[in-house]
Design a protein around this nucleic acid. Structure first.
Lengths: 334, 334
DNA sequence: CTGAAAGCGCTTACAG
DNA sequence: CTGAAAGCGCTTACAG
């Protein structure tokens, strides 16, 4: 393996000069720099980043922690992150925690030992408390929803406004009895989306009916169970707003199985805008998050902060826009 | 930051002893070991893995290189890899190369400087030549398809046998004019799947008709274009085997647009078994690869090799089984 | 602009 | 079983 010593010897300079040539920024005559660089190249010199980082330089590595990459929401987000990491010469570490707080903390401890420069955290249904301690003093950007107790940059969407768009769309189609399948309890994005449902109804003079609300979990199963529950309880509804696309897809399945036609008998709107939503039958009307941009902006925010002169300046929150995408699962109330 | 020196001082021992206590394996009295460990714990000592690795230990980090995480084939595979990495205390680096050889080589160079222990490579449509050089002497396991010129472990499926299953299924349903949308040219998995199509036909005494073959690219667009081409050319066919699920989905779309009912007018079979295939209308009959296990086995193979006494022993190829999953897109020939 | 030296935080022969 | 020392491959004050 070729080291700075080899390059130095061949160039007839000290290793300090080699280091300066390689890292440029120090004052060094351009003649020596060019000569050293040429020799380094001809020797096939490749710096050892371990040594570099141990000597005080950044590792140029960030980590992305998320619950489960097979959740269709995440690949697009990962791609957004990766795009920026690539652009800026950083490597991306991926960690799955399956919404398990202990696993997440163990991952963070490991990342700390590895001296990653910073982390991107999709908290899923994780509680903020344990995580906040684990990430202390590690530059962190939180994605998609706020995590209580965690003082960090946040990149998210306006979940409440998005939910309002979904429900307003249904109201405009003439629906009045609009069910809501919630997300998992206790996390802000669930609460905000439900609040958006309520707000939109009230704004039209409709008092939200508790009977129309069933609890889900952001998963297909929860949407399916929710759909069956609504029907079993003989709830009267002509439309439903599911807290995310996967639960909307589960709901679609339950409705179909129970003989209700979508959208003729029931209109359905989801939330997220995952690719999958375009392939269901009927294709799902949904409130699309800018998933790729969420990843992009979060990575940018993190790397900007890392590159900043004073990286500790106060946390920043970026709120991106959602967009209603109308497809086949919604129609005029009959 | 707490270092071995701090622990040593508090314990009244040398840093060598601290290191031995931490890493266990050396002979050290259990009394001192326990005492040192207790002190390390109470001081909140966390080893610096950069220093550890620079001093000769493995980085416990592997990398997974793939074309594009938003291709629905990959999330499941990543999860398989991650599962094993987690089990064995390794971190996972993710690199996207968008089927760009130069990008892949740059990534590999970076990974080398970071001293990753080994890499997992999904070559996509990458040519073997450039990659083979880049990975030289870096422990590598190749996934899903063989890469010519690359001497490494391989975990794959029997693409040809899988394709035969698809076509045999169609033959059993009475179809005789079975079109084939190929994968991208020049890569082994495409060729093998096409060879399977031919074999199955010949085995039933049918001579493969060139007219029934249209080139695709493993993407939805290629399947869509292929479907339109078949119809425009007025090719006579009652069934089609697409080289993968995404092209089958594109084909579904083209057929529907052209007024052909699936499966009544045309039966369609895909390949891969991505989740998405279960959500289309009709749901797609497909030859499922054990995607999660592909990732699992590849990671196991790599980590086994890294842990092995003689890591250079000759390359191993693991071939996993595919499984026909019959859904709504195929039916008896009318 | 350049070099000698110290230091980053570990592990591991080598002695004892 | 334990310690003193060397070494992993870099960067960066400190002098000059």
């Amino acid at each position: 393996m070729v080291t700075v010593h080899d390059v130095a010897r061949h160039a007839g300079v000290s290793i300090a000069t080699v280091s300066r040539a390689l890292n440029d920024r120090e004052r060094i005559s351009s003649a020596t720099r060019d000569r050293v660089l040429e020799i380094a190249r001809s020797l096939g010199y490749q710096p050892n980043d371990l040594a570099r980082s141990l000597a005080g330089m950044a590792t140029q590595t960030i980590a992305l922690l998320l619950p489960d990459i097979t959740n269709p929401f995440f690949p697009e987000l990962v791609k957004g992150v990766q795009t920026i990491a690539d652009e800026r010469g950083h490597l991306l570490l991926l960690c799955h925690n399956a919404d398990d707080g202990a696993k997440a903390r163990a991952d963070i401890a490991m990342l700390r030992r590895k001296k990653v420069d910073g982390i991107l955290l999709v908290a899923g249904t994780l509680k903020g408390r344990g995580i906040a301690g684990a990430t202390s003093d590690l530059p962190t950007v939180v994605l998609d929803r706020r995590v209580p107790g965690l003082r960090s940059d946040v990149v998210t969407v306006d979940h409440r406004a998005g939910a309002r768009k979904a429900v307003e769309h249904l109201l405009e189609l003439g629906h009045r009895r609009i069910a809501h399948i919630t997300g998992p309890p206790g996390i802000s994005s669930s609460k905000e989306r439900q609040a958006g449902w309520e707000e939109a109804l009230r704004a039209t003079g409709i008092e939200p009916d508790k009977e129309l609300v069933v609890q889900g979990d952001f998963l297909e199963d929860g949407g399916y169970a929710g759909g069956r529950a609504l029907i079993q309880r003989k709830v009267d509804f002509t439309a439903a707003f599911a807290a995310n696309d996967m639960s909307a897809i589960g709901l679609l399945k339950a409705l179909t199985e129970e003989g209700r036609q979508v959208p003729n008998d029931v209109s359905v709107v989801g939330f997220d805008g995952i690719h999958l939503a375009a392939y269901t039958a009927p294709a799902l009307t949904t409130v699309a998050q800018p998933i790729f941009d969420l990843g992009r902006r979060a990575a940018e925010l993190l790397l900007d902060r890392l590159a900043a002169a004073e990286p500790d300046k106060e946390p920043h929150t970026v709120v991106l826009e959602t967009k209603l995408v109308v497809r086949g699962s919604t129609s005029q109330r009959r």
